[in-house]
Design a protein around this nucleic acid. Sequence first.
DNA 1: CTACCCGTGCGACATTGTCGACCGCCCTTC
DNA 2: GAAGGGCGGTCGACAATGTCGCACGGGTAG
Lengths: 254, 254
Amino acid sequence: MPGPIQSLSRAAAILRLLAGGERRLGLSEVATSLDLAKGTAHGILRTLQQEGFVEQDPETGKYQLGAELLRLGQSYLDVHELRARALVWADDLARASGETVYLGVLHQRGVLIVHHVFRPDDTRQVLEVGSMHPLHSTALGKVLLAYDPVARGELGEGPLEAHTPRTLTDLGDIDAECALIRERGWADAIEETWEGVASIGALIQDRRRNPVGAVCISGAVERVCEDGFVRPQLVASVRSAARAISRDLGAGRF
Amino acid sequence: MPGPIQSLSRAAAILRLLAGGERRLGLSEVATSLDLAKGTAHGILRTLQQEGFVEQDPETGKYQLGAELLRLGQSYLDVHELRARALVWADDLARASGETVYLGVLHQRGVLIVHHVFRPDDTRQVLEVGSMHPLHSTALGKVLLAYDPVARGELGEGPLEAHTPRTLTDLGDIDAECALIRERGWADAIEETWEGVASIGALIQDRRRNPVGAVCISGAVERVCEDGFVRPQLVASVRSAARAISRDLGAGRF
DNA sequence: CTACCCGTGCGACATTGTCGACCGCCCTTC
DNA sequence: GAAGGGCGGTCGACAATGTCGCACGGGTAG
């Protein structure tokens, strides 16, 4: 594989840097953070700015992400085949289970939420489309981990954060859990990321049986669980939805 | 202004091209569309791919936008100051008016929706955050047009599309409408973009009185209007929300 | 079976991005 | 009020870098 284009990689690094820091960053901060000459960083930022990927506060001169990214992110969703086919099934699943439904795909070292159906007749919720969830402590993540060797491999590269006392942080435990998930065909995560929240997830695969994403329901542990285990009826609903989406992906195509 | 970075501009053009076409595009299509050598386009696409901005269908080899764009777009929303401060006011406005609320900012030659509150107790709706609305035929757009000379200037560069019979397509008419909007402090658009839909919008400005965005309500013309005019009480609600957000922007700061 | 088209790798060339020093500004500090 | 430091922005020389055209291999369609 021939070398990547230097200026592009650097521009991507700048965008990620701006996305990471909560506040706006100045030119010098960007340059020193990435070990770039100020002039170089400025050239890249100027180009990113006039393309709309970056905006500059006219008063302070500091930089932040630009609106074009939002527009392109929306376009990504528009052409996302998995998401398009899953929309109706996700709605059905939310209605049948009475819980929040997430649809996620593997991205970098986490799960990127590409669709989110609010829990029916619930209080106000924030849309989480576009945000990342951890791999090792959510039902979505563990499903993908169990079926995607690449994701499992990359998991060993960094330490695992313990979000709650129930989070699995030992790689051996996770491998055992993944084996169980593959055996029974679904994953759960009970208070492993957020206290009081349990989720049930199942795999979505394309017509070649490749894992392409996962669907889950997530809700208060009192509703989702019973005697310490997730309710079988909810598991059946999630698996049925995952199968339906997989079938849908396999069938139609232009 | 020294020249922009060529490879970056080309990469941005490729991303926009991929965002525009509904379907996935092949390497050759990209190269010919942008008058690039195949090798050049391939190098850029390969870099964009390993940065996550572009994904490649492993079967057909065709390219589409990547998940990283969705993540960065979400990050854009997270740091968006106007949006953050407007969230609660938008909720209030939706509750008070009973209609859908949009929050938009100027972007390129349209209005980019950065926040969207569903109409209370309504049927299923699709979230429009990240999508673009026209400048000359929506309340949001006309407000921004009336107060932003740059936007007005760029409007004259291209033809104006008539979405309905009521769309204003003559620049003179639009200037007159803008003068009226400035005079009374709010804008409306009654079936100018979609049949049966009317909207009322007002300007949001920062502490320097610069226009930074607009807020509007949008709903069925039968509810929003009365005897062919928008209902004064709704106008008052929208203007009040816009003032509140503007005040909020002017006051606090980190 | 052949002919075409596509995505991909390679290497020479010179265009292009990079680097470091310099400028002017604003805010702080003495 | 003057001096200092930090900021964003600019400029020009150098060579590293991206670009280009071509050739390869696999897939598909006719």
